Computed example of a mutant assay.
Amino acid sequence: MKYVHIDTVESGDFLGRTIFSSNGAVLLSEGVQLTVYMINTLRRIGVTMLYIKDEHLQDVEIDDVVSEENKRAVMQKMGEMLQSVRSGKEFNTRAVSISIDKLLEDVMQNREVLLQLTDIRTKDNEQYVHALNVCTMAALTGINMGLSATQVKELATGALLHDVGKVELLTDDDSEDLRKHHTWRGFDLLKSKRELSLLIAHVAFQHHEAPDGTGVPRGLEDEQIHLYAKIVAVANTYDNLLYNPATGERGKPHLVIEELSALSGTKLDREVVIQFLRTVSVYPTGTSVRLSNHEVGVVVGQHRGLPGRPVVRVIKKDDDDLTVNEFDLAKFTTLFVDAVL
C-alpha cells in the first residue's frame, strides 16, 4: 500500500484501508475500486490522504497499535456520549470506560509498535479520530513513563475526553477565548460524574496550560500542572500539528516532530516530549520519500528504537525490466531521508 494525497489518486485505483464515519460505520471498504464520483465525494467530505493498493507493495502491512474493531467501538461509544451532552441529557461513562479497557489491552500488547496516525479523516469523523489518537498517544507515553495500570486508565480516559467541553461549540476556531471556555466547560461536565476520578476532569481543565506559565485558563506553571495534563498537552499538540481541522491539510510527521521539539521546555514539558517521541513514527509506512542518494522509494518498515531510520523500498521500471531494492537505513548508515514526497 501507498499513503498518498487524494489529488494523486486516479479512477481505477483500489482503496487500501477502510474509511469509517464518526459512529464507526463503514463509508468505503478496503479493496473497493475507486471511481471519479467516489474520489470527488471523498474530497468533498474532507479526505486529503488515503491508502491505495500497489502491486509492488502487496506484502507491506501497516502495524496498528489499536485494532480497527476497537477503534470503531471507542468512536461509537464516544459519539453516543457526546450526543447526550449536546442534547443536555445525562451521559453514560460506563460504556466509554469498557471500550477504553479494550483499547488499553491492544496498547499493552502492541506497545513496541510505532504509532502511524494515518487513519483516514473526514469532516464527520475528525473530532473522534483526534480524541482516539490523543488517547492512544497519551497511554503509550504514560506507559513509557512508568505509570501504573490504574494511572494509565485514568490518563487514557482524560485524554479521550479532553475536548468534551467543545461539543456545544460548533467551530474550528482555536482562539484563546475558546480554549479557556472549553477547558472550564469540560471540567464542569466531568467533575460532576462521581464514577470518574477528579484527575480525569483536571485533564480537560489543564491540557492547555504550559510549563512557562503562558497557558490557559489559569496560567499555571510547571509543577502546578498535573502530569496527566502535561502528557495530554503533548499528544494534543502533536495531533493538531499533524492535521489542521480548519483546512483539512496534514503536516509531515518529521516536520511536526521538529516543531514539537522546539516547544519542549516552554509550552510543553521536556521529559514528556522525550518519552512521547519514542511512540510515534517519523516516516509512516507507505509514505513516499527521496533518499540522499536521489533514489525515490516507499517506506515499508519501521525500527522501534530508530524511528528516523526506516526501511525504504525503491522500485525502478526500465522498459520490461523491474528492479526492486530495499534500503534499511539502520544498516545503510550513510543514507538518510532527504525529503518526504
Rank of each mutant, 00 (worst) to 15 (best):
P310Y: 00
G251Y: 12
L291T: 10
N240I: 05
Y283M: 09
G251E: 13
P217R: 01
N240S: 14
E271C: 04
H254I: 12
T214D: 07
I231M: 07
Y238T: 09
Y228A: 05
N293K: 10
P217E: 03
R270H: 10
E221L: 05
G305N: 08
I231D: 03
Q275T: 03
T237C: 14
E295P: 03
G213V: 07
K317P: 01
E259G: 03
A246M: 15
I225M: 04
L291W: 09
V312D: 00
V298Y: 04
L255M: 12
E249Q: 15
E271F: 10
D222Y: 09
T287F: 05
S288M: 12
I231T: 08
N244R: 13
I274M: 09
H303P: 00
A210N: 13
V272S: 02
E209F: 11
V296M: 06
P245M: 12
N244K: 14
L322E: 07
R278F: 08
T247S: 15
Q224V: 07
E249R: 15
V272G: 02
E295Q: 12
I274T: 09
L277M: 15
I315Q: 01
H294D: 15
Y228H: 14
E271L: 12
V312T: 00
T237R: 15
P310S: 01
E271I: 11
V256C: 13
R313T: 01
T279L: 03
D212G: 10
K316N: 06
P211D: 07
E271P: 04
V300K: 03
D318C: 01
L260F: 06
R304Q: 08
E221R: 12
P310T: 00
R250S: 15
P284N: 04
V273R: 01
Y283D: 08
Y243V: 13
F276W: 05
H303R: 03
R278W: 09
H254F: 13
P284A: 01
L306W: 04
Y228V: 06
L242I: 11
E209M: 11
T247I: 11
S261C: 08
N293F: 10
V232P: 12
P245F: 13
V273G: 07
L242K: 13
Y238M: 11
T279Q: 02
G248W: 14
D239Y: 12
K230R: 15
P284F: 02
V216C: 09
V280S: 01
L242G: 11
V312K: 00
V256M: 11
R250G: 10
E295G: 02
E259L: 14
D320C: 04
R270W: 06
A246F: 06
R250E: 13
A262D: 07
G265H: 03
G301N: 00
L263F: 08
P211S: 10
P284S: 04
D212H: 10
G308T: 06
S292Y: 09
I231E: 03
V234R: 00
L322C: 02
D222C: 06
